[in-house]
Design a protein around this nucleic acid. Structure first.
Length: 329
DNA sequence: CTCCAGGGATGAT
DNA sequence: ATCATCCATGGA
């Protein structure tokens, strides 16, 4: 009977563990949000935002200071917010916040229809159906892209995660930990050495200097929303670690300036191979002028589609192409 | 192992 | 105004 007792305990233990495991699963009472013409996974993996983690069917991350779980079922998003530390923790998801973050109001059909017609942008448009330019918090976006210089997307994700874990606030969603992006003050109080421990390398100095400017109010990111495109770019470029490319990313991803056209190594490769074939000595100014004229008012979207398509179809410098012709698995 | 990455600041032409 | 060089780090 002693053995029977142990068996009963073991069974009980297993059932308890199974119950706990169920609690850690995404809960059933998810808020449903209609999201037609939207591809959540492609949007979150397109190199515009770096902290969402895919586990199972959904993504765990944060929108502002709220922990969020979100998964896509066809044209429906199922969402849950984590408990907030603010008045009487409510966990009801607020669809408006999610819809705004994922820019579900952007008229994608209209935007895509405004693209010029050529084989390269056509292919990118078809490949990236449902990819949206999301609305990111300004500081989070600015700081992350200061860290992005000469880093691969995987590295940026790693740096973002390290900064969040070390300097952000821990939250919980569906039994998992997520961390908020640290405030300007939190980073401004850090030392360069501490930042370097997050894998920042030489970017630590720039991030720290910019954090101090923002924390002190010398740089008022929110008030810059009223500026013209040119004025906004000017202000951003005065911040340490921010040049044309990063400024355009922040304008595109955090200021709704969807004409902004960041030119990184991938996009430059596409431009040179597609629109500047043979032409030597193409200055960066000439490229910026060309894309502004050619892609127009929604150039940022065209840029993001070209970027994601080029990256996913892996067209780096012609690699050792020896065995990708006729092998079978 | 080597290669390269969502670049920017700096100093020399 | 354009150009070369250096800057750290780690995934592929």
């Amino acid at each position: 009977m002693d053995r029977a007792f142990h068996r009963a305990m073991l069974k009980n233990s297993i059932e308890v563990r199974a119950g706990l495991a169920r609690l850690l699963d995404p809960p059933m009472d998810l808020t449903r949000i209609e999201a037609p013409d939207f591809d959540l996974a492609m949007t979150l993996n397109s190199g515009q935002v770096f902290h969402w983690e895919k586990i199972g069917d959904g993504f765990y991350g944060m929108i502002g200071d709220r922990a969020v779980y979100v998964e896509q079922r066809g044209d429906i998003l199922k969402v849950r917010f984590g408990e907030t530390s603010k008045p009487a923790g409510e966990t009801r998801a607020r669809p408006k916040v999610v819809a705004r973050y994922f820019a579900l109001d952007h008229p994608l059909e209209e935007i895509c229809a405004s693209f010029p017609r050529d084989p390269v942008i056509n292919a990118a448009r078809d490949f990236c159906r449902g990819l949206r330019i999301i609305r990111q918090p300004q500081w989070e976006c600015l700081a992350t892209f200061i860290c992005s210089s000469m880093k691969q997307v995987a590295h940026i994700r790693q740096i973002s995660q390290a900064l969040r874990q070390r300097f952000g606030q821990r939250k919980q969603i569906c039994g998992r930990e997520v961390f908020s992006f640290p405030s300007p003050d939190a980073l401004a109080r850090a030392t360069e050495r501490e930042l370097r421990k997050c894998g920042l390398g030489y970017r630590a100095k720039n991030l720290l200097a910019t954090a101090k400017r923002v924390a002190s109010g010398e740089a008022d990111l929110d008030s810059w929303r009223a500026l013209s495109e040119r004025q906004l770019r000017e202000q951003l470029c005065e911040l340490p670690g921010v040049g044309m490319k990063v400024a355009n990313c922040v304008m595109l991803f955090a200021y709704e300036r969807i004409a902004a056209f960041p030119i990184d190594v991938w996009i430059e490769r596409v431009l040179r191979e597609t629109y500047f074939v043979g032409g030597r000595k193409v200055t960066s100014k000439a490229m910026a002028e060309f894309v502004s004229n050619y892609f127009g008012a929604h150039g940022g979207y065209a840029q993001q589609y070209l970027f994601h398509h080029a990256r996913m179809t892996g067209k780096r410098k012609s690699r050792t192409r020896s065995i990708d012709c006729c092998h079978q698995t």
